[in-house]
Nucleic acid binder design. Structure first.
Length: 847
DNA sequence: GTAGGGTTAG
C-alpha cells in the first residue's frame, strides 16, 4: 500500500513551494526493518580510526550491511564535528544508492538528530526532505529531531508543514512529538498554537509544562510563565531543575525580586539539585532584579565558575552601569580562566564604551584579532560603538566600511555615535541612507531630537514612523512622553497612556511609569500622574521622586510631605534627588518652617550632605517668602561657593519683593561668575523697570546690545485638535490674528468691567502709557488664551504653555478671565503650573 | 527521541 501525503493540501502554503514534504512510498518500518546494531564503529574516537575500520569492512563486503552503516553513522554523530556529520550524511547517501531505502530509517533519524543538535537546523531539514524523496516514511522518533532543527533554523514554514505530516500520520498523540511542537511554536512566537497543542494533550509530562513555561518566559510573557508555574505546583505536579530554571528566568525578565524569591523557595522544598545552569539562572535573576549583593555572593561562592556564569556576571554589571566591576571579572578570567569568548568580549567592549576607555577598548580589539573573532558581526558592532563613544569616528567608520554584512545594529551604532560626537548632519545622512531603518533607528532619531529640545519635530518624526507602519515600543513612548511633557501636550499625553494600557506587549515598568508620571505632571494633570503612580506594580526612589515632583509643579507642599513620609514608611531610602523635588514643592507651597526641617534632616537623619542644588532650593524658598536677609545669610554660610543659580534665585526673589539693593548685589555676583548670561541682564533690567529706574534700564539694555546678548522672545503655545499653535509677544503675523484681534478687545472690555486694570510696571520699555497698555495687552499668553477661547467649547479647560515666567499682569488677567468666561485656565510657565478657576489661582498669588 | 543559563545599538 503506497502512502501519499501532501501537507500542502492540509495547510495553506504556496503550492509552488519547493518546501512541501511529500511521502511517496511505503513506510520502511513495514518492510522488514529491524533494530540495527552499532557494531564495531562504536569504539572509534576519531575520523581517522573510523575511516581505517571502514576500509577493512569494505574489503570483507560488510559495507552493504545496514547494521554496519548504522554503527558508522552513530559514531559520526557521537563525534559531532562538522566533518563527521557531513561524513555520516555521505555514508547514508551511498547506502541508499546501493541498497535502496529499506533499513535506512534509523540512519536518517540519526543524521537529522546530529545536525539538529549541533545547530545545523537547515541541514537537518534538507536530510528530512531527502528522506521523503527516496521514499522513507518518517516515524514518531523523526519529528522531535526535525522540529528541534526547524526551531533552531527559525524555519517556521517547514515546522508547520511537519505538523501537517504529523497529523496525517497519526503520531500527534505521542507526548514527545507534542512536546516538540510546543517548543517549536513557542520559539516561533506562535503562543496561540503553543497553547492549543498543550490544551489538547490527553496526557502531559513535566517536559510539556516546562516547554510551555519556557515558551512564555521567552516570548515576552514572563508574567504568564510564572503564573503557570505556580498553578502547576498548586496542582501537585513536581517541577524538575529545568522547570525551575525557566520560572526563575521569567522572574528575571519581570525584575520582580519578591516573586523570584518565592519561586526559588521551591528549589529547597522539592530538594532539587542546584547545578551550574541553575546557579547561573539565579545569579542572572538577582542581578536583573537589582540585588547585586546576593548575585555577587552566589557568584563568589561558586567553586566551578564556567564561561556562561562569568558572562552572566559581566553582562549584568555592564547593564547596571558598573563597567569597572565587569572588567574586574574579565581580569580574573584572563588570569585564572575560563577563557573569554566572543560573548565575554561583547560585554568587555561595552564596558570600555561606557567608561570611554580607549586604551582598554583597543586592547580588547587586540584580543579579538588574536583570537580571530573579528569576523563576528556583533563584535564589530560593539567595536563601532566603542570607537564612537571614545570619540574616534574615523576608526568606527573604517570598521563599518570593512564589514561585509552590515546589520541594522551597525548602522544604528554609527548613527547614535555621530549624535554623541555632535555630528548631527552625518547622523541624519546615514539615517536616510540606511536600507531598513528599524525601531531602534527611529528611536535614536526621535531621542536625539528630544535631547536637542526639538519636541515638535520629535513628535512629527514619531507620526512619520507610524505612517511607515513601525509600531512604537516602551523606549519610543518614553521619548515621546518626555517631548509631550515639555510641550505640555495634554491630548497626546492621554493618547500615550491609553496606548500603553491597550498594548499587552508594552510593559509599563519602573522607567516608563516614572516617565509617564513626569509627563502628566508637566502637562498640568497631577490627577493622572498620581493615577499612574498608584497603578505601578513597584516603586523605586525615582518613581516617588516623580510623584513628589508632580506635587511641586502643582504647588502642593502638604501632599508632597505626605508622599515623602509614605515613601519612608515603605522602607525606600531617600536620595539627594528626591530632596530637590521635596524642597521645591515646599518652596512653591510657601512652607518655610517645613523647609528648614527637611533641609536639616538631610544630613542629620539620612546622612545626605546637602549639595548646591539643595541650598538653591532653600534660597528660593526663603526668597519667595520675602525672607531676603535670611536667604542672603544662608548663602554666606554655605560650605561651598554659591553658583549662578543661587544668585539668580535671590535676584528673582528681589524682583518679586522689589528689593533693588539686594538685587544689585546679586546681579554683581552673577556678572562676575557668568558675564554673558542673557537671562540675568533681562532680570536686572526688569528690576530697574519695575522700580521705575529707566536710566539704569537703558544702561543694561545698552550693555546687552554691546555684548551681543539677546532676550529670547516670550512665547506661549496651545494645543487644539492635536495641532500646536505658538504665539510670540506682539507678533501680528499669524493668520489667526484676524480672529484674535476682536476677541482681545472683547476680553479687555469684560475683564475691566469686572475690576481688572493693567499693571503697567510689567512693561519694560520707557514708552508712554497708551503704548505700554498696548504692549501689555499683546503678551503672548493673552494671545494664546484668546485663541483658545475661540477654538474650544465651553467647559473645556484652556491650556497654555509659556517659555518664561508669567508676569503679574497676565496672572491677574487670567484670574479675571477664568471668572468672567467661567473657564478653567491652566498655564505652565518655565517654573510651575497655575490653575485658574473662578477668579483665583492655585498658587494663591505666590510664585 | 522532547524542555533550561550568558550576546552589541535606542
Amino acid at each position: 500500500m503506497a502512502t501519499v501525503i501532501t501537507p500542502a493540501s492540509l495547510i495553506p502554503v504556496s503550492s509552488t513551494s519547493n518546501l512541501t514534504f511529500t511521502i511517496q512510498h511505503e513506510p520502511a518500518s513495514a518492510a522488514g526493518y529491524s533494530l540495527p546494531r552499532t557494531g564495531s564503529f562504536k569504539n572509534c574516537k576519531s575520523m581517522l580510526e573510523l575511516k581505517q575500520l571502514q576500509s577493512q569492512i569494505t574489503k570483507t563486503g560488510q559495507d552493504q550491511d545496514p547494521s554496519s552503516i548504522t554503527g558508522l553513522i552513530s559514531s559520526c554523530i557521537e563525534m559531532g564535528t562538522d566533518v563527521s556529520l557531513d561524513y555520516a550524511r555521505k555514508a547514508l547517501e551511498v547506502f541508499v544508492e546501493d541498497n535502496g531505502p529499506t533499513g535506512s530509517l534509523y540512519m536518517f533519524n540519526s543524521v537529522i538528530r546530529g545536525y539538529s543538535s549541533r545547530g545545523f537546523g537547515d541541514r537537518a531539514i534538507l536530510v528530512f526532505k531527502e528522506m521523503l524523496c527516496v521514499g522513507v516514511c518518517p516515524d514518531k522518533y523523526t519529528f522531535p529531531f526535525l522540529l528541534s532543527g526547524c526551531t533552531k533554523a527559525g524555519a517556521f514554514r517547514e515546522g508547520i508543514q511537519a505538523h501537517g505530516v504529523i497529523a496525517k500520520m497519526g503520531v500527534c498523540r505521542d507526548v514527545f512529538v507534542q512536546n516538540s511542537l510546543i517548543h517549536f511554536y513557542a520559539e516561533c512566537g506562535e503562543i496561540e498554537h503553543t497553547r492549543k497543542v498543550f490544551d489538547e494533550m490527553s496526557e502531559r509530562n513535566i517536559v510539556s509544562w516546562t516547554s510551555l513555561i519556557g515558551g512564555y518566559a521567552k516570548r515576552n510573557s514572563p508574567k504568564e510563565a510564572v503564573t503557570l508555574f505556580l498553578e502547576m505546583v498548586e496542582m501537585g505536579i513536581v517541577p524538575n531543575p529545568v522547570t525551575l530554571v525557566c520560572a526563575i528566568s521569567a522572574c528575571a525578565k519581570l525584575q520582580d525580586l519578591e516573586l523570584g524569591k518565592k519561586v526559588c523557595a521551591y528549589i529547597g522544598e522539592f530538594g532539587l539539585e542546584v547545578n551550574t545552569v541553575m546557579t547561573n539562572a539565579l545569579v542572572d535573576m538577582y542581578m536583573k532584579c537589582g540585588d547585586i549583593d546576593s548575585a555577587k555572593r552566589l557568584f563568589d561562592e561558586c567553586t566551578d565558575k564556567n564561561l556562561v556564569l562569568c558572562n552572566t556576571m559581566m553582562s549584568n554589571y555592564v547593564r547596571h552601569g558598573m563597567p569597572v566591576e565587569g572588567l574586574v571579572v574579565l581580569d580574573q578570567m584572563l588570569q585564572h580562566g575560563p577563557r573569554p569568548d566572543r560573548v565575554t568580549m561583547l560585554s568587555a567592549i561595552s564596558a570600555c564604551s561606557q567608561t570611554e576607555d580607549l586604551l582598554h577598548g583597543r586592547s580588547c580589539h587586540g584580543y579579538i584579532l588574536r583570537n580571530a573573532l573579528e569576523h563576528w558581526d556583533n563584535i564589530c558592532n560593539a567595536l563601532i560603538d566603542m570607537y564612537m563613544k571614545c570619540d574616534k569616528p574615523q576608526a568606527a567608520c573604517a570598521l563599518f566600511n570593512r564589514m561585509p554584512n552590515k546589520t541594522s545594529v551597525s548602522w544604528n551604532s554609527l548613527i547614535s555615535g555621530f549624535f554623541k560626537c555632535g555630528d548631527v548632519e552625518s547622523a541624519w545622512q546615514l539615517f536616510q541612507e540606511m536600507p531598513d531603518a528599524d525601531l531602534v533607528s527611529w528611536n535614536t532619531m526621535i531621542g536625539a531630537l528630544v535631547q536637542d529640545s526639538m519636541f515638535m519635530e520629535a513628535i512629527e518624526l514619531f507620526r512619520k514612523m507610524q505612517n511607515q507602519g513601525v509600531e512604537p515600543d516602551r523606549v519610543t513612548l518614553m521619548e515621546l512622553a518626555s517631548a509631550c511633557g515639555y510641550l505640555g501636550a495634554v491630548e497626546l499625553a492621554k493618547w500615550i497612556y491609553l496606548y500603553i494600557q491597550k498594548k499587552d506587549d508594552i510593559q509599563c515598568d519602573l522607567r516608563l511609569g516614572t516617565a509617564l508620571i513626569d509627563m502628566f505632571a508637566r502637562c498640568g494633570d497631577p490627577h493622572s500622574a498620581m493615577q499612574v503612580f498608584s497603578h505601578m506594580a513597584q516603586r523605586d526612589v525615582s518613581a516617588w521622586t516623580a510623584a513628589i515632583g508632580a506635587m511641586a509643579m502643582e504647588g502642593n507642599g502638604k501632599q508632597a510631605i505626605e508622599l515623602f513620609n509614605e515613601m519612608l514608611h515603605q522602607g525606600i531610602k531617600p536620595d539627594a534627588v528626591v530632596f530637590v523635588n521635596l524642597l521645591t514643592a515646599l518652596s512653591h507651597g510657601g512652607l518655610v518652617e517645613e523647609g528648614w526641617e527637611f533641609f536639616g534632616s538631610m544630613d542629620d537623619s539620612f546622612g545626605i550632605k546637602p549639595k548646591v542644588v539643595h541650598y538653591g532650593c532653600m534660597v528660593d524658598l526663603l526668597g519667595r517668602a520675602g525672607l531676603l536677609a535670611e536667604a542672603l545669610n544662608l548663602i554666606k554660610h554655605m560650605p561651598m561657593e554659591p553658583n549662578v543659580v543661587i544668585w539668580s534665585s535671590l535676584l528673582a526673589a528681589c524682583r518679586m519683593h522689589k528689593n533693588v539693593d539686594v538685587a544689585k548685589y546679586a546681579a554683581e555676583k552673577i556678572a562676575q561668575l557668568d558675564p554673558e548670561r542673557p537671562g540675568i541682564h533681562v532680570l536686572l533690567s526688569n528690576i530697574y523697570a519695575s522700580a521705575g529706574q529707566w536710566n539704569d534700564v537703558a544702561k543694561v539694555r545698552l550693555q546687552m546690545k554691546e555684548q551681543g546678548v539677546q532676550k529670547g522672545p516670550g512665547s506661549s503655545s496651545v494645543q487644539i485638535d492635536g495641532e500646536v499653535y505658538e504665539f510670540t509677544s506682539g507678533a501680528e503675523t499669524r493668520p489667526e490674528m484676524d480672529r484674535i484681534e476682536p476677541m482681545l478687545v472683547e476680553m479687555n472690555c469684560r475683564v475691566r468691567e469686572a475690576g481688572y486694570s493693567p499693571n503697567l510696571t510689567n512693561v519694560l520699555l520707557d514708552v508712554d502709557e497708551p503704548e505700554k497698555e498696548y504692549l501689555l495687552s499683546r503678551h503672548s499668553e493673552k494671545l494664546a488664551i484668546a485663541f483658545s477661547l475661540i477654538n474650544t467649547g465651553q467647559g473645556m479647560p484652556v491650556r497654555v504653555v509659556k517659555n518664561l515666567r508669567i508676569c503679574s499682569d497676565c496672572h491677574t488677567f487670567a484670574k479675571s478671565v477664568s471668572k468672567v468666561y467661567n473657564r478653567e485656565i491652566i498655564i505652565r510657565d518655565n517654573n510651575r503650573f497655575h490653575f485658574f478657576r473662578h477668579g483665583s489661582c492655585s498658587c494663591k498669588d505666590y510664585w
